[in-house]
Design a binder for these strands. Structure first.
Lengths: 348, 348
DNA sequence: TTGAAAGCGTTACCAA
DNA sequence: TTGGTAACGCTTTCAA
């Protein structure tokens, strides 16, 4: 029925062991023999049995990339870069390359754990976790335990855009969300803004907390009440829209809104537009992430650029072992991108 | 070292066979026994060995979802919906659920084939191919052959937003790109537009060809030269930007531009904006796909809505077998969404 | 309802 | 440089 390694061996008139060696290329094989084997592989259209290979070798070619929302280009860019780096990296078993796959947790802690178990079950070669983590202590502990088991079993664990986990991890590439947010708000303050609203991300996530903390640090440093004008919401457009209306209700005279990310900023802009307010002349809006569409969506948007592609690619290299893990986690900085948003507050 | 099924069996004082039966739940097991086994599983923190299981059962829990560009929300939405449907579907081996993973081909025929081979190697339970196909005859034949091998080996093959492949496929859910594009251009014609530019997608892909054909059908039906004002480019913003400038160079008096998709339309809008032209008052712009950001990016954009989420979810159900494959492929229609784009041509 | 045991297709060790 | 051959951990028939 299906062609096996034994069939190839028979056809090439060698032992199965030799075929395996040719395919894996880890052992010396005579050129003539190798030739014969490869021809047989081709003629029989042989495809290695991955499960059998993984069972015997106690490891597989699978690399899992976990993302919070696959429909969000933020993760798409990271995952795409990681997948490419992994594909280009060291070849996996049997001369084939590693199979980098992305798993969509939807931001759900349960699904995150489920995927980790599934990947553990598959004896994955590596796992890359991207984006913010849920901060529930119980879940955090469960994830840490799971990651420890994975590393113990030889699976490489890489964190990308996610804060380090004590000792359970091969490498961590955290984003400096706090610093980026602080610099962003400092920029607004320098322009003279004082009544600044904040649309934070979903509560209980590291990304949300860090960005919010950065914002508040800047506010506090300027002697302003840091917590007054904050609304939480999910990382989508609707959330920004609703939040902007709520902020305007609370403080009709606000002159700037700092949003959790670019997508949220888009919703903010839409709400302002409906209210007849212009960006950035009436209200300055800032985002975070600098996604490709934001320049069209809101040309006047000031945002923070995170090197998503670079971070993803590096995470991929760390996952394959093509790059040595850094001694300790060095946060990847986010730099404000000032497009047209240099408007000073006008007061209304 | 690692906990095996035998360890669980020993602890529960049953045979390995019984443990397997409890885990898979396909055979009757006494309630008390099952209880004991599950407790042992829990106490030992046992995780099934996927490769071993897949080897013995000759099939795995893996479902591959191939996308052309993971950073494009078009695919993200489809893949997310498919992944969710697959996760919610019939449980896979050992009571766990299916592992739906997305693979990013980057639109490259080689990577597409490579991923198919990798999934074949893993003995994937199903494969979902999304989005347009490259039309190179050689590649088409190679893919068809590969898909035939996959179905022969018991892997379900589902096409989502991709034209059917002769006999090699379990189910196909093609998008009616041609009809959607035709209706879109008809709309422009009804408004009185005559000098309509077209920014088509990358040459040699089914999606591009079908959308272009629909556009030209409408043009021809209106007695207009169908091929005059067409520029090809990739599915990204830059492509739209460049194409719009080129179209304006060729026909400064054009009053409408039909873009390959929403992302491209964004680039078109940006170029027009730079030229001091307003959308839709000076130039009407149409996109395709109706992605979430387009409403903010270009509120005046007319676009075609494809039910991406529904299509992805259905593809997922077809992949798990939760839904019976349709007798034959029924194209999923795309309906024009007229936001503010009802402007008639002004002539310039 | 349960157990015993024969595979499943590779890998990797030990010889030759 | 090559071959023989135990594992690897699970599933599944066949018996009991």
């Amino acid at each position: 029925m299906t062609v096996t390694l034994a069939d190839v061996a028979a056809r090439a008139r060698v032992s199965p062991a030799t075929v395996s060696r040719v395919l894996n290329g880890n052992y010396p094989v005579a050129a003539a023999t190798r030739e014969r084997v490869l021809r047989a592989v081709d003629e029989l259209d042989y495809v290695l049995n991955g499960p059998a290979s993984a069972l015997a070798a106690a490891t597989s070619d699978l690399v899992g990339v976990l993302v919070n929302d696959i429909a969000d280009p933020f993760f798409g860019i990271i995952a795409g870069a990681a997948q490419q780096a992994i594909g280009e990296g060291a070849p996996g078993r049997a001369g084939g390359e590693k199979l980098a796959v992305v798993c969509n947790t939807g931001g759900s802690p349960e699904r995150e754990l489920r995927y980790l178990t599934l990947l553990q079950r598959q004896r994955a070669a590596a796992v890359v976790l991207t984006g913010g983590a849920v901060e529930d202590p119980e879940h955090l502990a469960a994830v840490a335990a799971k990651l420890t088991r994975l590393t113990d079993a030889g699976t490489r664990v890489v964190l990308c855009g996610r804060p380090p986990v004590e000792g359970a991890v091969t490498a961590a590439l955290p984003f400096d969300n706090r610093g980026g947010a602080r610099r962003m708000t400092e920029h607004l303050l320098e322009l003279g803004h004082r009544r600044i609203g904040c649309v934070a991300g979903p509560a209980g996530r590291t990304t949300t907390r860090h960005r919010l903390e950065g914002h508040r640090e800047a506010m506090a440093a300027a002697g302003l009440p840091p917590g007054g004008l904050t609304v939480h919401g999910s990382y989508d457009r609707t959330s920004g829209y609703d939040a902007a209306l709520e902020l305007l209700r609370r403080e009709p005279g606000l002159t700037a809104i700092a949003a959790a990310n670019d997508t949220v900023a888009l919703g903010v802009c839409a709400a302002l537009r409906e209210r007849g307010l212009r960006v950035p002349d009436d209200v300055s809006v800032t985002g975070f992430d600098d996604l490709p569409f934001s320049v069209d969506a809101a040309p006047a948007l000031t945002t923070v650029r995170l090197p998503l592609h670079e971070a993803g690619a590096r995470a991929g290299r760390l996952a394959t072992g093509a790059e040595a893990p850094p001694r300790e986690a060095v946060p990847i900085p986010g730099v404000p991108v000032l497009r047209a948003s240099t408007a000073r507050p006008r007061g209304r």
